[in-house]
Simulated scan of single mutants.
Amino acid sequence: MVNSLMPFSSLRDIARFDPFREMDDFFQDYAAFPRLRMGDAAQRIRVDMSENEQAYMLRAELPGVQKEDIKVAIDGNQVSITAEVKKEEQHENGNMVRSERYYGQQYRSFSLPQEVDESKAEAKCHDGILELTLPKKPGGGGRTLQIQ
């Protein structure tokens, strides 16, 4: 007979208690409290950005957004993306019990290290991915001042 003893720890049960997870579990299935779950509903636009000597390349995830509902603004080195996610009206047999999809406006803005030549910038959208090519303005790399 093998006797396996576990050392006694009076703090073990307290250490496993996560009050935030417990509250999340408590309210997770209650449709009467949708505002408590809104923190993760309005997702930020997720972006991958790379650069070479000539331009910045940006890929942004915008699932379910039509290209007509996307606006890109360029002002110097500031680039802003605004997307309107519209709700599709679907009436199936009965009332909506739970909806986890986000509808509304999403916004993301960036400050780039160098100004963008907005006259040569390009934007393409396909399969929920926005692709921006943002050429750098010549000579716009900034300047370091010599302290006298």
Rank of each mutant, 00 (worst) to 15 (best):
M1Y: 11
M1F: 10
V2K: 15
V2G: 15
N3A: 09
N3I: 10
N3G: 10
M6E: 11
S10E: 12
D13M: 04
A15R: 04
F17A: 02
R21K: 10
E22R: 13
E22T: 12
E22H: 14
M23D: 11
D24M: 09
D25V: 04
F26Q: 14
F27Y: 15
A31M: 05
A32G: 08
L36F: 04
M38P: 05
G39C: 07
G39E: 14
A41P: 11
A42S: 15
Q43S: 12
V47S: 09
V47K: 05
M49C: 04
S50K: 12
L58W: 01
L58K: 01
E61W: 10
L62V: 05
P63L: 09
P63Q: 10
K67N: 14
V72I: 06
A73E: 11
I74R: 00
D75T: 10
G76W: 01
V79K: 06
S80Q: 12
S80P: 11
V85T: 11
K87C: 07
K87N: 13
E89G: 13
M96F: 12
M96R: 06
S99E: 10
S99A: 07
E100M: 03
E100W: 01
Y102F: 12
Y102E: 01
Y102M: 04
Y103Q: 02
Q105M: 15
F110K: 03
S111V: 12
L112N: 06
L112Y: 05
P113G: 08
Q114I: 02
Q114V: 07
Q114F: 02
S119Y: 00
K124Q: 05
H126F: 11
L132M: 05
L134K: 03
K136I: 09
K137P: 06
K137E: 07
P138L: 14
G139C: 07
G140R: 00
G141P: 06
I147D: 00
I147Q: 01
Q148T: 03
